[in-house]
Design a protein around this nucleic acid. Structure first.
Lengths: 141, 141
DNA sequence: TCAACAGTTTAGAATTATTCTAAAGAGACT
DNA sequence: AGTCTCTTTAGAATAATTCTAAACTGTTGA
């Protein structure tokens, strides 16, 4: 017998949290469900908080900030730095790249095969490469 | 007869400003001299302001911010977004890429031939590519 | 089952980088 | 020199984010 979608989503979220070593609290569960429900998303803390409030989820902005950082640390999210005034979080943690349009403040995944970055440079002494961020800045015309 | 270095630097700065369509005021001249005196640099507004003050240049922090943005608009600087808490400005406006070490908050140019980015993706409809930012995140080991 | 502990949430204050404001100052052109 | 416009400035204002300390809640083990 099939369970209701709601329940399944909840269980998925809970499992995800447990695997990440995070205690599955009500808030974290709800936020996880919002974040990972459909496709990949690019959100700021304010955006996620607004969405949660709109859906009747009771959670404070401080918790949204905490949670986003915890999720990022746990590898569930990627923090994308493109705008000097805001932090975006990406639910797609696979290696991929972004378009960023300053005019409209929009951040989107680059579809299809990723840009190939050839010949990675040798990192400064004492360091190793963690990851390579590629942001293609675009402008309306 | 040779002019003193100081004077030459001042005149170079003034020229640079005029060419950029910026009125060469005392503050802008002094900041330009600090920014462009040796090699390429990566600075925040706070850093430049501290440097100016240390050298006895009387300039307010607000002016440093204004100036950095004006220089950026004029193409004399590049704003590099790597840290969600701070804005860096790069005196190297040529097409190049960066190493960023979060551990020590250091931003450096990638030396030698730049990373080749093959097969630029088609930008979203209604937009054109402005530039491609590549940041190689490194970590101490 | 429930007490107790450690981890979590919260409102609101605090912090930090940055921008704004409006008044005083200074290039530039006549 | 005079005037006009652009620039600078101190300090206030703003916006995103972090901190604080008190209340709350999963979890664990008796």
């Amino acid at each position: 017998m099939r369970k209701k979608l709601r329940e399944t989503a909840h269980e998925t979220a809970t499992m995800r949290l447990r695997q990440a070593g995070l205690r599955p609290t009500r808030q974290r569960n709800e936020l996880a469900k919002l974040l990972f429900r459909d496709g990949h998303r690019h959100l700021t803390a304010e955006m996620l908080h607004a969405e949660a409030v709109a859906e009747g989820v009771k959670v404070s902005l401080a918790t949204v900030y905490n949670t986003l950082h915890q999720f990022t640390q746990a590898g569930l999210l990627l923090q994308v730095v493109v705008d000097p005034t805001r932090s975006y979080f990406d639910t797609n943690t696979a290696d991929h790249q972004h378009f960023y349009c300053e005019d409209e403040n929009s951040l989107t995944d680059i579809p299809g095969p990723e840009i190939s970055v050839a010949d990675l440079p040798t990192p400064p002494p004492g360091t190793e490469i963690k990851r390579v961020d590629v942001v293609v800045h675009v402008r309306r015309h």
